[in-house]
Simulated scan of single mutants.
Amino acid sequence: MARSLPADRFWGRLLLASLLVNSRLDSVLRDTVTGLQANSLTPLYALPAAVRRRLAGAPIQIDGNLLDPDLQLLLRVDNLLPRTTKTDAATARARFRNLCKLIQGTPAELQRVTDLTVRGADGQLGARLYIPRDAGRGLLVFFHGGGWVVGDLDTHDGLCRAIAADAGIRVLSVDYRLAPEAPAPTAAEDAIAAFTWAVEHADDLGVDPALVAVGGDSAGGNLAAVVTQQTVRRGLPHPALQVLLYPAVDLVARRPSRDLFSEGFILSENDIIWYRDHYTPDPTIRPDPIVSPIRADDLTGLPPTYLTTAGFDPLRDEGLEYAQALRAAGNPITHIPHPTLCHGYANLLTVPGKIPQAQTHLTNHLRSALH
Rank of each mutant, 00 (worst) to 15 (best):
E200H: 10
G215C: 09
I192L: 08
G215P: 13
D208G: 00
P209T: 09
H201K: 13
V207E: 08
A213M: 07
A213Q: 12
G215Y: 05
H201N: 15
G216V: 12
V214Q: 10
A219F: 08
V207S: 07
A210I: 00
G215N: 06
L205N: 14
D204Y: 09
D208L: 01
A219K: 04
E200Q: 14
W197C: 04
E200L: 01
G220W: 11
L211R: 15
D190G: 09
E189P: 01
V212N: 04
G220I: 12
G220Q: 14
G215H: 10
A198D: 09
E200N: 14
L211G: 01
D208K: 04
A194Y: 04
A191V: 08
D203R: 15
A191R: 04
V199Q: 05
D204N: 10
F195Q: 00
A213F: 04
I192Y: 02
D203F: 15
G206F: 11
G215E: 06
A213C: 12
V214N: 05
P209W: 09
A194Q: 07
E200G: 12
A198L: 07
A198N: 11
A193N: 01
V214K: 08
G215F: 03
V199P: 00
D208I: 00
V212Q: 02
D217I: 07
V207C: 14
A198S: 13
V207K: 07
A202G: 09
G215M: 03
A219Y: 11
V212F: 12
S218D: 11
A193I: 01
E200P: 13
G220K: 11
D203T: 15
A210V: 06
A210P: 10
D203G: 09
A194H: 05
E189A: 02
F195V: 03
H201Y: 03
H201A: 01
G220M: 07
A194T: 09
D190M: 06
V207N: 09
D204L: 06
D217L: 05
L211Y: 00
T196C: 05
S218F: 03
F195Y: 13
A219H: 08
E200A: 15
P209K: 06
E189R: 13
T196S: 01
D208M: 04
E200M: 05
D208F: 04
A202S: 07
F195K: 01
I192W: 00
G220S: 07
D208A: 03
I192N: 06
E189Q: 09
L205Q: 05
A191W: 02
G206K: 13
A202R: 01
E189V: 05
A202C: 08
V207T: 15
D203V: 11
E189F: 05
E200V: 02
A213R: 08
I192K: 01
D203A: 14
G206S: 14
L205K: 08
V199Y: 00
D203S: 13
A219G: 14
